[in-house]
């Protein structure tokens, strides 16, 4: 049975679904009986979600024009 600490190093790959199927099964099996790990995985997943949903910043019209002006001047 995988211990909590061993599980920790795999958790980003786990939430990204980017890992060997056998390790994934070990984690699935562990978290079934480990509420703290479920909570931790949820919060790590939410961290990723929060980053993905950060509002996009765009350059102002003035800044875009300034860049083109500088480029045309060489």
């Amino acid at each position: 049975m995988m211990k909590c600490r061993e599980l920790l190093k795999h958790l980003s790959d786990y939430i990204d679904r980017d890992m060997d199927a056998s390790i994934c099964r070990h984690i699935d099996s562990h978290v079934k009986g480990c509420k703290p790990c479920i909570t931790f995985i949820n919060t790590l997943r939410k961290t990723k979600g929060i980053l993905q949903r950060q509002p996009k910043a765009v350059p102002s019209k003035k800044l875009r024009s300034e860049l083109r002006r500088r480029l045309s001047q060489g």
Binding site: C34, P36, T39, N42, K46
Partner: peptide
């Protein structure tokens, strides 16, 4: 959990109540 075999380590983690969309 690894140190003493006690699985009750819940004080370490708190769940986040809101979904990511609302939090963001």
């Amino acid at each position: 959990h690894d140190e003493d075999g006690n699985s009750d380590h819940s004080p370490l983690w708190r769940d986040w109540s809101d979904g990511p969309e609302e939090l963001a």
